[in-house]
């Protein structure tokens, strides 16, 4: 080994020494600077998972709320807001669970309610929505609706209370004057428990034919088709949207 070293030219010896020095410096740095838990579980600092797992929980979760507020929970679980967790309206409650002196807020105005219930055409149809501009403008929502059991003070008479998008579309269509109930029969329970009591829908071509067949006994001006010749494979609403029929276009 030593013999080989002696054979090296002087400049090479110098370079090798510098290289070894560099490697030694790197090893020392690695020893002192790499956190001891790095690579413990994988290519990362092991302690960081624990740090993240131990972060403070702010939303306690509905199960915890129910434990003390079982009276309100009882009411809420029977109503439309059963799936709306307590902390949606009252804010993060973990601090309150730990120390009941820390009070949570109860929203009193209209701002929070309309985040969900303001009319937006993009919202799924059937979701109860209002136009806050015209819906009892000055009154806070809670003066008529109990947020824990938000039954309307009187069941809405108009279908548009929940089916705003359809109502709006229909209002400027050729079918504007056709009442919803002409095509859909809803049981009274639909207003109380909508999804379990769905309204009816027309089932056959003949239903539309009552107005649109050539021999239909209705006023002049309604477009007519030959029910036997016109696209018999389909039911009418496969091509024509009944809430916005395209006649004339």
């Amino acid at each position: 080994m030593l013999k080989l070293w002696k054979k090296f030219p002087g400049q090479l010896k110098r370079l090798i020494l510098i290289f070894l020095l560099f490697v030694a410096a790197l090893m020392t740095a690695r020893h002192f600077l790499i956190p001891h838990d790095y690579g413990q579980y994988g290519n990362y600092r092991g302690g960081s998972v624990h740090e993240i797992a131990n972060l403070e929980v702010k939303y306690a979760g509905q199960i915890v709320c129910v434990d003390c507020h079982d009276d309100i929970a009882e009411i809420k679980f029977a109503g439309y807001h059963k799936n709306v967790a307590c902390e949606v309206c009252h804010g993060p409650g973990a601090a309150h669970v730990e120390d009941s002196d820390i009070e949570l807020t109860s929203p009193r105005g209209r701002d929070l309610c309309i985040l969900c219930h303001e009319y937006l055409p993009s919202r799924p149809t059937g979701f109860p929505q209002i136009v806050s501009e015209s819906h009892n403008r000055v009154k806070p929502c809670i003066s008529c609706h109990d947020p824990h059991d938000p039954v309307p003070p009187e069941a809405p008479k108009e279908c548009s209370a929940c089916h705003g998008t359809i109502a709006r579309t229909k209002s400027h269509s050729y079918h504007a004057d056709v009442e919803c109930v002409y095509c859909h029969q809803a049981s009274p329970e639909h207003k109380v428990n909508p999804r379990e009591n769905l309204p009816s829908k027309p089932k056959t071509r003949d239903f539309c034919g009552k107005c649109h067949a050539e021999d239909a006994d209705v006023e002049f001006g309604i477009p007519r088709v030959d029910m036997d010749a016109h696209e018999k494979r389909y039911v009418c609403w496969q091509c024509h949207y009944p809430h916005l029929p395209e006649a004339g276009q």
């Binding site: 030219p9 002087g10 400049q11 090479l12 110098r14 510098i18």
Partner: peptide, 15 residues
């Protein structure tokens, strides 16, 4: 030069 002194032909050829 890292205090090297060897500039004989052999060393320079090596360089």
């Amino acid at each position: 030069s890292l205090f090297s002194v060897d500039i004989y032909d052999k060393a320079v050829r090596f360089d």
